[in-house]
Write a protein that binds this DNA or RNA. Structure first.
Lengths: 141, 141
DNA sequence: TATTGTTATACTCTATAACTATA
DNA sequence: TATAGTTATAGAGTATAACAATA
């Protein structure tokens, strides 16, 4: 069964690997009341890049309209806030609050632990190479 | 932006790579009136493994109840059919029809072409290694 | 008792179009 | 004329529980 036409199909392997990773991620994030997508936004904002909602949408491959409600939720919970961009009154810049930073730190640890667990059968070298190759595929530019 | 906390996060890269691959896949499959999931079922059935619906569900990480409606659709279109398993009257074995085989062949070509295009910036060696590593991650057993 | 396929339901995610305020 | 954010809506994907037939 493993040796089906799909087994050398990179798209299929990608889909299955991602499904496993998503499950593990959601399980790890549940205690923090975060989903993978809200966690990703926190991660993006955590670096003090001050991204606009548009930046977030593009980097996370989300529609701008989805970002609205995700940020709404995070803002309601006091984890991020919207700052007006002084140079363009149309755009909001998303920044992290102290509570957000703290929650993200714990969530980040949990995610890393889950990931380490999920890939425990890979050698450090294999993990490294996987990461490099995936970066190429995820950001082909 | 590319250099955010997420860039060395395998889960994130996996998610983004999969999103790109899904888009390309859906675009390639649209002319055949297939979605990625129905295509995957065809691919699994195409090898004459005669999988049960349960087998399909497990291998594709779908809930058995989802498989029902996917097979319903494919069967209505005459692409697959359900054969009773002689050794266990509870289970259906899913097999391909001639039309199904023919459609799958064309769809398979289209998917391969799209995939080749999507990974055209990788060397053959990199593609090979990516495939091997993903197989390890997708099937950790 | 446990398992296969099935039905039903609710929730999340994804995709699209249209609107407003700014540029 | 184009872009950022927003609202609304519909469709696809996901998760769960319960049931009949069979093992």
């Amino acid at each position: 069964m493993r040796a089906s036409a799909l087994k050398d199909d990179v798209s299929f392997l990608l889909a299955r690997a991602n499904a496993l990773s998503l499950s593990a991620g959601h399980a790890a994030l549940a205690p923090f009341n975060l989903r993978v997508r809200s966690y990703s936004i926190l991660a993006l904002v955590a670096d003090d890049i001050r991204p606009s909602q548009r930046d977030i949408a593009e980097h996370l491959r989300l529609d701008p309209s989805q970002v609205v409600s995700l940020i709404d939720d995070l803002q309601t919970r006091g984890l991020v806030k919207r700052d007006p961009d002084p140079t363009d009154r149309r755009t909001n810049v998303v920044v992290m609050t102290d509570e957000g930073r703290e929650l993200f730190r714990s969530a980040h640890d949990a995610v890393r632990a889950a990931e380490r667990d999920l890939h425990s059968h890979l050698s450090p070298d294999q993990r490294e190479r996987l990461s490099e190759l995936l970066l190429l595929v995820a950001f082909p530019d």
